[in-house]
Measured scan of single mutants.
Amino acid sequence: DHWHVHIDGERIRLDGASEEFIRTLEELIRRGTDARELKEIIKEYLR
């Protein structure tokens, strides 16, 4: 599956992301997590 998110107007691909990770991201977004912080979390995950 190819997922991607838009954060700060930037399109970030989440290739190979699990549904669990996507749900976690959605939860963080709902909580109002800062965009820079979200991008860091995604970069760490994709390593």
Results as ranks from 00 to 15, higher is better:
Gly32Phe: 03
Arg23Asp: 06
Glu20Val: 05
Ile22Arg: 13
Leu46Pro: 07
Lys39Gln: 09
Ala35Arg: 06
Ile22Asn: 02
Val5Trp: 02
Ala17Val: 14
Arg47Met: 12
His6Ser: 11
Arg11Asn: 15
Tyr45Asp: 03
His2Glu: 14
Lys39Val: 09
His6Lys: 10
Ala17Gln: 04
Glu27Tyr: 06
Arg31Asp: 08
Arg13Lys: 11
Phe21Lys: 01
Gly16Cys: 05
Arg47Thr: 14
Asp1Ala: 08
Glu40Cys: 04
Phe21Ile: 07
Tyr45Arg: 10
Asp15Glu: 13
Glu37Arg: 14
Leu28Asp: 01
Tyr45Lys: 10
Arg31Cys: 08
Arg23Tyr: 08
Ile41Asn: 01
Gly9Ser: 05
Asp15His: 10
Gly32Arg: 03
Ile22Ala: 04
Asp15Lys: 09
Ile42Val: 09
Ile42Phe: 02
Val5Ile: 14
Ile12Ser: 01
Leu38Gln: 00
Glu44Met: 05
Arg30Ser: 12
Leu46Gln: 08
Ile7His: 01
His4Arg: 01
Glu40Ser: 09
Asp34Ser: 12
Gly32Leu: 03
Glu10Asp: 08
Ala17Cys: 02
Glu27Ser: 09
Leu38Lys: 00
Glu20Ser: 12
Trp3Pro: 15
Arg23Leu: 10
Arg36Thr: 14
Arg11Gly: 10
Arg36Glu: 13
Ala17Trp: 05
Ile29Leu: 09
Ala35Pro: 15
Asp1Trp: 02
Glu37Lys: 14
Asp15Ser: 10
Val5Cys: 03
Glu10Ser: 05
Ala17Asp: 03
Arg36Tyr: 14
Tyr45Cys: 04
Glu26Ala: 09
Arg23Pro: 00
Arg47Lys: 15
His2Ile: 09
Asp8His: 04
Trp3Thr: 13
His4Phe: 07
Asp15Leu: 06
Ile12Gln: 02
Ile7Tyr: 01
Ile22Val: 12
Glu19Tyr: 07
Glu10Lys: 07
Ala17Pro: 07
Glu26Cys: 04
Ile22Asp: 00
Ile12Leu: 07
Trp3Gly: 08
Thr24Pro: 00
Thr33Phe: 04
Thr33Ile: 14
Leu46Trp: 11
Gly16Ile: 07
Arg30Asp: 08
Glu20Ala: 12
His2Asn: 15
Asp8Asn: 11
Arg31Gln: 14
Gly9Asn: 10
Ile41Met: 12
Leu28Met: 14
Glu27Thr: 09
Trp3Met: 12
Gly16Asp: 07
Ile22Pro: 00
Arg13Trp: 15
Trp3Asn: 13
Tyr45Asn: 12
Leu14Phe: 05
Thr24Leu: 12
Arg11Gln: 15
Asp34Thr: 14
Arg13Cys: 12
Leu28Pro: 00
Ile42Gly: 00
Lys43Asn: 14
Arg23Phe: 07
Ile29Lys: 03
Leu38Pro: 00
Tyr45Ser: 11
Leu25Cys: 02
Ala35Asn: 09
